[in-house]
Design a protein around this nucleic acid. Structure first.
Length: 810
RNA sequence: GCCCGGGUGGCGAAACUGGCAGACGCAACGGACUUAAAAUCCGUUUUCCGGCAACGGGAGUGCGGGUUCAAGUCCCGCCCCGGGCACCA
């Protein structure tokens, strides 16, 4: 057949049309007779256009999905839209478009790009989180949590982003600023808010991390551990004259004899009973902390004049207010042990509060005053009454137990993790399904009245209160219990609620009577492979784990952990920052596809670097990938159905083809270094070009046949086109993955370098399979080796089969 | 400050369990083809020294030590970059 010029446009259009007319091409059906494989990429926010970062994410997942199909698995590979969120409201203000219209038209645009890239999604299972058939189940879950006490409402100091005009979860505060607005410090506001009791699962979320070990990246597990932040210690009551007992949390109760003052947070309830001047001072501290954001600030405090009784030694210590003590952690009050805590040391030194060392090193005396610094190490407890002489570790448990027996304390565990604040004072989110009745209080919307529909006609100004408060027909409703006039909750849910369980819905996306059918979940779950950006290591991935455990506890049949294996791909950086629409540095996927085609964009996204690594996107190099495809295409077309050469190169290219096949199979099964998979295909292409004239027709056809399968997971259009050039029909990715032939792949000869004292001095070629002795003998007969060894004494010879020979001489 | 990653040619990178450092691609240069250019094909390209040459010799994976016949890879101590946490008691 004469050579054809590679025209990606024509090829991609042709198959795109054919595939569009085949709605079942990527269809997945639960089938207990076949092994399943659930591969999932994180669903995108429909911002308007897919960029090259998305393409990288989906190219990894799609290659895997197609490979697993070829390995005979029943593959579930779905896609959807994380469609609620603030940008839709901002767009509504800027363009005078309803958020829903804007969002759905973006979905349409992006879906077109998805299809253009031929990602193998079963679109029949598509989930769009802003549609009532999805968010009604958010509401349903919320009510279940309300019934279980897992959703509750409280007045709390919350993170407020003035630009978003809404509350943020702790997980959405980055360096003291809003996660969407770098450089906009988050303010603290006291508001009535809805919370989900994530802390009820702190222990289980932490413990189950060990189940994920080895199949989730360590980095992510470490981040989650730190985020949960478990501290084991004790809570101890210090009696304050004229006030009552005040509880402190400490991890070092063994140092309590060295406590020389109590320090409370400026928000602590005690402050309310202090003088007006002190209250003002405390308020000042709170404001400074709220406005300055993160970073070092000087420790400051003042003496309240109150005294607290240390229940262990019966001594009285002054009570101070300190700006570094956090109300949100532990009990908001600490005992300061300046000798053994760096922060306490700094504070007490500044204010002249006494320092009392009570721990000595195992092999040394109690440190002498004055101290240069605090020593927080464990050691032997001294000057501590009956506990003197005990090891710190033992004293910690013994003293906590003692406190419990004497009823002035108890062992305690504290977590850094806090309950998830889910209220948002915004329009474009799931309405929280409760009604506030003046008689009945908070009343859940009955299940048969779900979904609480988000009204379509709403004016969004981006200022002031929740936009829903301005919609009287939404707000004013009768109480479901007593029928008297009541008001609907106007806060909406955090969008992270939507993404916490969407992957369950894919298994049963059209169910209108429950969130999903448990038989379907049983078949498809857990997710075998989840792929997404590392930036979701704590937010989305902790919420998802929480949600799964919560669903189990409200009686649904789900596994303990939703995701078996997690892969976090690196970010695509452009001009030094992560690609994002707000930074204006996105490279639209369609631009690359216009110029070079979808296959090229996909291949390049994988070729630029190993998938877990961040890459700086530069166009240089895209041409090389396109050139590679063109070389493959031209070579294949001009060789299919031609007489071929004399076959003298057959063994060589067959060997290479099977080596590459083995390498790529291994890459899929373990490392996912697709950059080297693609490089291996390039090597094979180069070899075929070099040997082309002397390859027989049958060997060429065999090699091209393998090559088409190798390409299939990465470049679906090119692979399909070549498959059809070979005269074959049907989708190539449904063919079985070829088995590699170890005999064909085996090298017959190998070049062995000979080192003399570690420096390469000669090389010789031997048949493969020689053992140590044979290899050494062969080396000793090599002319160059003989010459290099002349006049020297051989001390030792190291021969490593298939690798090298090293001769140590004197 | 603490906890994770990472540092290899002009650039993106490769070297999987210690065994030929730089596969593959980009860029650059040279050649073939062409009236010419593009495209394509074939070469060269870590660096220094010697040689017209084939070739020979030295250095080299952030820095300084060490282990080993052998170190990009292992150990100790630093420096730099990226990420996470950051008064968490």
């Amino acid at each position: 057949m004469p050579e054809k010029i590679y025209d990606h446009n024509q090829i991609e259009l042709k198959w795109h049309d054919q595939w569009s007319n085949d709605p079942d091409l990527y269809k997945a059906e639960a089938d207990s007779a076949r092994p399943k494989y659930y591969v999932l990429e994180m669903l995108p926010y429909p911002s308007g256009a897919l960029h090259i970062g998305h393409i990288r994410n989906y190219s990894i997942g799609d290659a895997l999905a197609r490979y697993m199909w070829m390995r005979g698995y029943n593959v579930l590979h779905p896609m959807g839209w994380d469609a609620f969120g603030l940008p839709a409201e901002n767009a509504a203000i800027a363009n005078k478009r309803a958020p829903r219209d804007w969002t759905l038209s973006n979905v349409e645009k992006m879906k077109r790009t998805h299809r253009r890239f031929a990602f193998s999604y079963d679109w029949d299972r598509e989930v769009t989180t802003c549609e009532p058939d999805y968010y009604r189940w958010n509401q349903w879950f919320f009510i279940r949590m309300l019934e279980k006490g897992l959703a509750y409402r409280k007045q709390a100091l919350v993170n407020w982003c003035p630009k978003c005009a809404t509350v943020l979860a702790n997980e959405q505060v980055v360096d003291g600023c809003c996660w969407r607005h770098d450089g906009t410090p988050v303010e603290q506001r006291a508001l009535e808010q809805w919370f989900l009791r994530t802390t009820a699962y702190a222990e289980e979320l932490l413990a189950d991390i060990s189940k994920l070990e080895g199949s989730w990246p360590d980095r992510v597990l470490t981040m989650q551990r730190n985020w949960i932040g478990r501290s084991e210690g004790a809570e101890i009551d210090f009696m304050i004259e004229g006030y009552g007992p005040v509880r402190v949390f400490t991890t070092r109760v063994d140092t309590i004899y060295g406590a020389t003052c109590m320090i409370i947070a400026p928000e602590h309830p005690i402050v309310a009973g202090l003088t007006a001047e002190m209250k003002a001072q405390a308020r000042g501290m709170i404001e400074v902390r709220a406005n300055e954001g993160p970073g070092d600030f000087e420790k400051e405090g003042f003496n309240t004049g109150l005294h607290a009784l240390n229940p262990f030694n019966g001594e009285t210590v002054p009570v101070w207010v300190g700006n570094f003590v956090l109300m949100g952690y532990g009990t908001g009050a600490i005992m300061a042990v300046p000798a053994h805590d760096e922060r306490d040391f700094e504070f007490c030194t500044k204010y002249g509060i006494p320092i009392v060392p009570v721990i000595r090193p195992v092999d040394g005396p109690v440190p002498q005053l004055p101290l240069k610094a605090a020593n927080g190490d464990y050691g032997i407890v001294e000057n501590s009454g009956q506990w003197s002489g005990m090891k710190s570790e033992d004293a910690r448990t013994e003293m906590a137990r003692h406190a419990e027996q004497c009823l002035f304390g108890a062992p305690a565990i504290t977590y850094r993790l806090k309950d998830w604040g889910v209220s948002r004072q915004r329009y474009w989110g799931t309405p929280i399904p409760v009604i506030h009745c003046p008689h009945c209080g908070v009343v859940a919307v009955p299940d048969d009245q779900l979904p609480v529909l988000l009204p379509r006609q709403v004016e969004i100004t981006g200022k002031g209160r929740s936009p829903l408060e301005e919609v009287p027909e939404f707000v004013n409703v009768p109480c479901p219990k007593c029928g008297s006039p009541a008001k609907r909750e106007t806060d909406t849910m955090d969008t992270f609620v939507d993404s916490s369980w969407y992957f369950y819905r894919y298994c049963d996306s059209k169910n209108s009577t429950k969130p999903f059918d448990s038989d379907k979940i049983k078949y498809w779950f857990p997710i075998d492979q989840y792929i997404g950006g590392v930036e979701h290591a704590i937010l989305h991935l902790i919420y998802s784990r929480f949600w799964t455990k919560m669903m189990r506890d409200i009686g649904l049949d789900v596994p303990d952990e939703p995701v078996k294996k997690l892969f976090t791909q690196g970010m695509v950086i452009s001009n030094g920052t992560k690609m994002s629409k707000s930074d204006g540095n996105v490279v639209p996927a369609d631009d690359v596809a216009d110029r070079y085609g979808a296959d090229t964009a996909r291949l390049f996204a994988l070729f630029a670097a190993p998938p877990e690594k961040d890459v700086d996107w530069i166009d240089a190099g895209v041409e090389g990938i396109h050139r590679f495809q063109s070389r493959v295409y031209r070579l294949a077309t001009r060789n299919i159905g031609t007489p071929g050469g004399d076959g003298s190169s057959d063994a060589k290219v067959l060997r290479k083809a099977h080596q590459v096949l083995r390498k790529i199979t291994e890459d899929f099964d373990s490392r996912w270094h697709f950059n080297t998979s693609i490089a291996a295909m390039m090597e094979l292409t180069n070899d075929l070009y070099a040997e082309e004239a002397t390859i027989s027709a049958s060997a060429m056809e065999h090699v091209i046949g393998i090559f088409v399968f190798l390409l299939a997971p990465f470049a679906p259009y090119l692979a399909q086109e070549l498959w059809s050039e070979l005269g074959r029909t049907g989708p190539v990715f449904r063919q079985p993955w070829p088995a590699f032939d170890a005999d064909l792949a085996r090298e017959t000869e190998i070049e062995i370098p000979v080192q003399i004292n570690g420096k390469i001095r000669a090389r010789f070629t031997v048949p493969t399979g020689l053992d140590k002795a044979q290899l050494e003998a062969a080396a000793r007969t090599d002319e160059k080796v003989i010459a290099a060894l002349d006049g020297k004494t051989i001390v030792k010879v190291i021969a490593v089969p298939e690798k090298l020979v090293n001769v140590v001489v004197k």
